[in-house]
Write a protein that binds this DNA or RNA. Structure first.
Length: 929
DNA sequence: CTCGTCACG
DNA sequence: GACGTACGTGACGAGT
């Protein structure tokens, strides 16, 4: 049947379907290999619903799904900033694009995209053809850019709201008929697509003007006549931009297409290709539903494909690993990787500082027992050679050739790159211009599965799960002063070591990946571990600018004060000794001066901690007081003002910390080399160090932190009405607790009573004990216990929470955060003092862990949220994020970041309390905090 | 390499 | 009845 009168064409906006599906569904993955599949699932469901919903009398005769071609379009040539604000699609969505095309074809529906054009242009062209042939056309989309096409038998249909949009609907939205929509859009512009338009003119004003002057050209010609000076000026000054905008928003409706309307004729889906596609995607429910509807037997979905059990994994054999020396050998590996769809990757470098080391070689593995090493920059001479030469060793590919060959594979959306601690390798690759994606990380898989049970380093995992001790690196590099870097290792020695790491990584992945579902931590891994890798890698590469001179001046200052104190201390002690030695200090205080004090078990040394010295100082001991002063300065100098200077990268002038994703059992990050999560703030003197952390010229540091996030989570989890209400009312929570506990009205609150309540609030989070609170508040233990009893009396829900949590931990040997993170508590139920530790850790973990989850979720969403804004995320300090922002953009960035942070629990968890984020700005961190 | 100490949330 | 006790981290210097 040739398309004509009586025919009805349905054009589905494929990209809109994909994004809607992606955002509507959790990040599902294919069970057998972890391929992200949520958007495809949603897409198929929407397509199927669309088919089912259109079987009535108004059924289409012709259907097509139209997609955007990935890449630049002709509009970018007209205007280079077109859609430049659009963030790139999420990493786990990209591999799903081709699959949605496959899905469309599997449903036996025509599917088209054209290079250099947008889907909207194709839709415009087809709808015009349909109209001219005398038929009808329904565009299934709610995109306002398509509204210009409505009329003359062309309508739109919002599939979500099931609402048809005709010419009246367009008038409602734009204030003008479809034929004038582009004029209004050209004037109003569009910040999402970066259409400039005229400043200060929105849709309302634009419609008003167009209705008054008939069309855009006439309006521009008569712009001088406009009464309002602002509008007149905007139109006159921006006439060219407005005409350009019109060009951008006007859809091309006369494309040369290599298919006709007749090719889009609706055909019934064929059971075979459709069901085999759905089975391949492992969509159980949909496969069954469609099979039933077609009246055929649903095919079985066997999920044992690749990993699951690998009882026949071959034993480790380092002799079997391949030394890749030339293009032919590497080509073969790349071909195998494409056959497989995944590869384990590991990089060897000249050190551990990712910002400075060189890439020395790359290892790959696609199957247990089979791995290769591609040496690239090994030096000629071996370690025993006295004069190491700079010449490259034999048997290595040219560095650039190898990278050029590997780069497309490493960046290919359809190839999963598996690594152990991929953040490290991703940073190394980023420095040679390769953006590795998508990735899986065995360290993070283990973290999601086993947090609390053991560490997640490769050696430990290999021993524990593969019963294999990896080849140690020590014999290759040596130790101490004579240690060499990996590029000095003989290639023949490097091959088995390096290739084995890839082999181990692959085997661990095969073992761990299927366990995610079994342990119900897929969502944890997919939303809070894996997507964090590129985010943290970027933050670490950003670094934060540190002013060396500020630190250096402080160091000198501290050194002088310390010298003076040291002399004073020696004077008081009656002899000279090392003030930094707790052992010597203890002997002086307790033996020579004969003060009261006890030994501390294991080493037999006296305890001289701050608490001990403070007690002595309070009794009037001058020596103890001076040592405390000295210690504070010593700490600040050695750990901060001195050490920090050594961490300033000479190339960037910035300090690049490294975040440990799988370090803390609770889900918190840890910061190392240097630790930027413990920069002083509590004392005036220490806080000055933060003045050395500065923003680049023209920029400021912006700090946003969650207010009382752990107490809010406690209020939510333990379901304490009084606390929840207090947070909703924005009350001072410690004062409110104090008032409740000590029967003091809020307006009679004293700082001291509030301080006690604050200590109790924190104590609760940590699994309070009378002893601990007594020590913290320096009050008699009995009194502390009285406070605690009173607290539980007033908030009985807290006790219930603690009891049920401990019971849960006893039974399951793990606890869970609000977002499903499991924290294992293997010590639970053991005897002795360890029982107490385990109990308190179990009480604390869901609280601290949920807070950690929330900021992780915020961080994962941040790059997209601030995309296109002149802002960089630099640091995370547990409940605080620090950004470097161009001065003029501070307000805009603050709003966006605050929204993301305050909404980070959604949609997974709707908290009963609001999350509140405080913001600060300054030229340095001291000001911003 | 372990311990004591102390910086942070 | 005694025992040890706030939760989670990392870095430094001393001393083995």
């Amino acid at each position: 049947m040739s398309f004509g009168k009586g025919c009805h064409l349905h054009l589905i906006d494929g990209s809109a379907f994909i994004f809607r599906a992606y955002h509507a569904l959790p990040p599902l993955t294919r069970k057998s290999d972890g391929l992200p599949i949520g958007a495809v699932a949603g897409f198929c469901n929407m397509l199927y619903k669309q088919i089912e919903a259109n079987k009535g009398p108004d059924a289409p005769t012709h259907v097509a799904v139209i997609f955007d071609y990935s890449g630049k379009t002709f509009r970018n040539e007209i205007y280079d900033k077109y859609k430049a604000n659009r963030p790139p699609p999420p990493e786990d969505l990209r591999p799903q694009f081709p699959l949605t095309r496959d899905a469309t074809r599997a449903f036996n529906i025509a599917c088209h995209e054209v290079e250099g054009f947008e889907a909207d242009d194709i839709i415009a062209t087809l709808s015009r053809q349909a109209r001219e042939a005398g038929g009808r056309c329904t565009i299934i989309s709610s995109d306002k850019d398509l509204m210009q096409l409505v009329g003359g038998g062309v309508e739109m249909l919002d599939a979500m709201k099931n609402k048809r949009i005709d010419a009246d609907g367009v008038r409602e939205k734009f204030g003008v008929g479809p034929e004038r929509v582009v004029d209004v859009q050209a004037l109003a512009g569009d910040s999402v697509d970066n259409i400039p338009g005229a400043p200060g003119i929105g849709i309302k004003t634009a419609a008003l003007l167009i209705n008054e002057y008939g069309d855009l050209e006439n309006l521009l010609e008569h712009a001088e006549e406009i009464k309002q000076p602002k509008r007149r000026q905007a139109l006159i000054e921006n006439a060219d931009l407005i005409r350009l905008s019109k060009q951008l928003v006007t859809l091309v409706d006369d494309m040369d297409l290599d298919f006709t309307l007749d090719d889009l004729e609706l055909k019934a889906p064929e059971p075979e290709p459709l069901l085999s596609f759905l089975t391949e995607m492992e969509f159980r429910t949909l496969t069954k539903r469609i099979a039933d509807q077609m009246g055929v037997e649903p095919p079985a979905i066997e999920v044992s494909a690749a990993p699951v059990d690998t009882p026949d994994a071959p034993p480790f054999n380092a002799g079997k690993y391949e030394w890749v020396k030339d293009v032919d050998a590497l080509t073969k590996w790349i071909e195998r990787i494409y056959e497989r769809g995944y590869v384990a990757v590991d990089t060897e470098t000249t050190g551990l500082d990712t910002m400075r080391v060189d890439l020395v070689g790359i290892s790959l593995s696609v199957e247990a027992g089979e791995a290769c090493y591609i040496p690239l920059r090994h030096k000629e001479s071996a370690g025993d050679d006295l004069f190491a030469s700079d010449a490259l060793a034999e048997g290595q590919m040219n560095f650039d050739v190898a990278l050029t060959m590997l780069k497309p594979m490493l960046q290919d959306e359809s190839i999963l790159k598996i690594g152990q601690n991929m953040k490290y390798d991703a940073k190394i690759f980023a420095r040679v211009g390769v953006d590795v994606a998508p990735i899986d990380d065995t360290m993070l898989l283990s973290y999601a599965l086993h947090a609390g049970l053991h560490n997640h380093g490769m050696d430990a995992l290999s021993e524990r799960y593969l019963d294999h001790s990896p080849i140690p690196i020590k014999p290759l590099l040596g130790a101490g002063k004579s240690a060499i870097t990996f590029d000095k290792v003989k290639v023949a020695d490097a091959v088995p070591y390096a290739a084995e790491d890839a082999d181990i990584t692959l085997r661990l992945w095969q073992m761990f990946k299927p366990r995610l579902h079994v342990e119900q931590v897929t969502t944890v891994y997919e939303t809070m571990e894996r997507p964090l890798v590129p985010v943290l890698a970027q933050m670490e590469m950003n670094g934060i600018k540190v002013d060396r001179d500020v630190l250096s001046r402080m160091s000198n200052n501290f050194a002088q004060k310390m010298a003076a104190l040291e002399a004073e201390i020696h004077e008081l002690a009656g002899r000279s000794f090392n003030v930094g030695s707790p052992k010597q200090l203890g002997e002086i205080l307790f033996d020579e001066m004969g003060l009261e004090g006890g030994k501390k078990g294991k080493t037999g040394a006296y305890a001289t901690g701050a608490d001990v010295l403070e007690d002595l100082a309070a009794e009037g001991n001058e020596l103890a007081a001076r040592v405390l002063d000295w210690r504070q300065l010593s700490k600040l100098k050695s750990t901060y003002t001195d050490a920090l200077q050594d961490h300033i990268n000479p190339d960037t002038g910035r300090v690049h910390t490294s975040y440990v994703i799988a370090g803390a059992n609770t889900g918190r990050l840890a910061s190392t080399d240097p630790n930027l999560q413990n920069i002083p703030v509590r004392t005036e003197e220490g806080r000055k160090i933060r003045e050395a952390f500065v923003a680049d010229e023209g920029k400021v540091l912006l700090s946003l932190d969650y207010s009382q996030i752990e107490l809010r989570i406690l209020a939510h989890i333990a379901d304490i009405d009084a606390l929840k209400q207090a947070f909703r009312d924005g009350l001072d929570i410690h004062a409110m607790t104090a008032s409740e506990m000590f029967d003091v009205p809020l307006d009679e609150m004293t700082p001291d009573i509030r301080r006690k309540a604050k200590a109790i609030n924190f104590g609760v989070i940590y699994g309070i004990s009378g002893f601990g609170l007594a020590r913290n508040l320096r009050i008699p233990r009995k009194e502390a216990q009285g406070f605690i009893d009173r607290y539980f009396e007033r908030f009985p829900g807290i006790r219930t929470y603690m009891d049920t949590t401990v019971e849960y931990a006893k039974e399951h040997k793990y606890v869970k955060t609000l977002f499903g993170r499991k924290i294992h508590t293997p010590e639970m139920g053991s005897k002795g003092p360890r029982a107490g530790f385990a109990k308190r850790a179990a009480i604390n973990a869901p609280i601290q862990g949920s807070a950690a989850d929330i900021i992780r979720r915020a961080m994962v969403r941040m790059p997209e949220a601030i995309y296109g804004m002149p802002a960089k995320m630099l640091l995370q300090v547990h409940d605080e994020l620090i950004f470097e922002v161009e001065e003029g953009a501070v307000d805009a960035v603050t709003k966006v970041v605050r929204d993301v942070m305050e909404g980070a629990s959604m949609p997974a968890v709707k908290l009963d309390v609001p999350l509140i984020v405080d913001a600060g700005v300054g030229v340095n961190w001291a000001e911003a905090h």
